[in-house]
């Protein structure tokens, strides 16, 4: 059993498919509702299969922060309107195989968008680090 992070990006990754090019504000309110309902449905299905760990959506607002020496306030930079890669949210699943992780990601990517057509958004799939096995020799 391995945990995988399914990352949804606002920007970044391979070239978007035609169905996911229209920004959400161009959709009808019903299409937005249908999309969000589908996301909940995905979580429900994964939970029912005993595979769901967690999911979160991220605000696109964000800044970069770093240490600037003892006693000094943190230095911030941004927000950057044109960052190459922007993460929209994630889902964590705990599944039996990498094939199953890909299947779940494709399911997530089939969420309806404008015109009710599957968005075919690219979902980034990243395995979690595990514990080392006890028996190695």
């Amino acid at each position: 059993m391995t945990k995988y992070l399914l990352l949804k990006h606002y920007r970044g990754g391979p070239k978007p498919m035609p169905n996911s090019e229209a920004p959400m504000e161009d959709w009808t309110p019903q299409e937005i509702s249908d999309h969000l309902a589908f996301m909940n449905h995905v979580a429900d299905v994964l939970r029912e299969r005993g595979e769901y760990v967690e999911g979160q959506a991220l605000s696109p607002e964000g800044v970069f922060v770093r240490f600037d020496g003892e006693g000094k306030p943190p230095v911030t930079d941004g927000p950057f309107a044109e960052t190459k890669d922007l993460i929209a949210g994630w889902m964590v699943i705990d599944v039996d195989s990498v094939e199953r992780a890909h299947e779940a990601a494709a399911f997530l990517s089939s969420a309806p968008g404008k015109g009710g057509k599957p968005l075919q958004e690219w979902i980034e799939v990243r395995p979690f680090m595990t514990e080392p096995p006890v028996v190695t020799e």
Binding site: G50, E51, Y52, V53
Partner: peptide, 14 residues
């Protein structure tokens, strides 16, 4: 196994 209790309950019941 670091999963929510509801998820593990489902896994067992399935």
């Amino acid at each position: 196994y670091l999963v929510p209790e509801a998820t593990m309950a489902q896994r067992i019941s399935r």
